[in-house]
Amino acid sequence: MNENEKFMAKLLAYMKNKRSNLFREIRKNKISYLLIAPYCILFILFYLVPVCMSIGLSFTYFNILEPARFVGWKNYVDLFFADEVFLKAVKNTFLFAIITGPIGYFLALFIAWMINDIKNSKIRAFMTLIFYAPTISGQAYIVWKYIFSSDTYGMANGWLMKWGLTFQPILWFEDEKFIAPILIIVVLWMSMGTGFLSFIAGLQNVDRSLYEAGYMDGITNRFQELWYITLPAMKEQLMFGAVMTITSSFAIHDQLAALAGFPSVNYAAHTVVSHLIDYGTVRFEMGYASAIATLLFMVMILCNKLVQSLLRKVGK
């Protein structure tokens, strides 16, 4: 009996304590919740709700004028079985994403790695600027339109004709053969981006003593050093760069539309985002466009998971 009472008293004290802890927690957290409130409200309103709405709308027919009408999986079925242009857009997007994504990513990493080896800090800063400038220079990609202009005044045509390699100007952006390769070059040119800066910073932060230890352990060349020491030490930056690259390489559209036209010749530069913009802002078939947006989002998340599991293997 005595023992039981003791236990009850203990339990009560414990609960009281726990309760007061909880109250204190809540009171303390009130400030935390207040601090995050402005951001979270805006974030929910303009990022979270739109993504959920997009998923919801993808099951409807919606043209803004009439109320949305539920149509089930029809939009998705149509996309895959009745929309040849969409399939072409998917093919193009994967072509661009698979070529420009990994190449851009590794090129950025490789170049950041080489820039990091430069001893003079002035030259290092200058090289960083050169590789990052195309990314921040807004619509400067329009200069490629001049380089690959379809008349004799374009750089590429002018030189090819001067050297006698061709006798009449090549219609770069009107010929399906050339559209994709040129655009891939342009996208690569622009895609150093955020990942690149992150890599530069990651490289600078690698603990120097790790290298010393590595030399003791018999690392004999710079590639071993990169794989066994540098990359594992900057895994977090690699991840950040990957997320940025995936997002941007699946969302390619603006550069393509500006250079190859929208819609492009025979849809040669038509990506999933082009298709989304076509249905969303030109045809006002919002339900259908939302289905495209939802698919795009899902593919990006999947890719991200894939890359995450690949990055776990770094340095092993």
Partner: peptide, 21 residues
């Protein structure tokens, strides 16, 4: 975690609902 996932929301995905909002 939600915000890290949101790094992947490209503006195009949210464009239509944003217009409606």
């Amino acid at each position: 975690w939600i915000i890290v996932t949101a790094l992947m929301f490209s503006t195009q995905v949210t464009a239509i609902p944003n217009y409606l909002i």
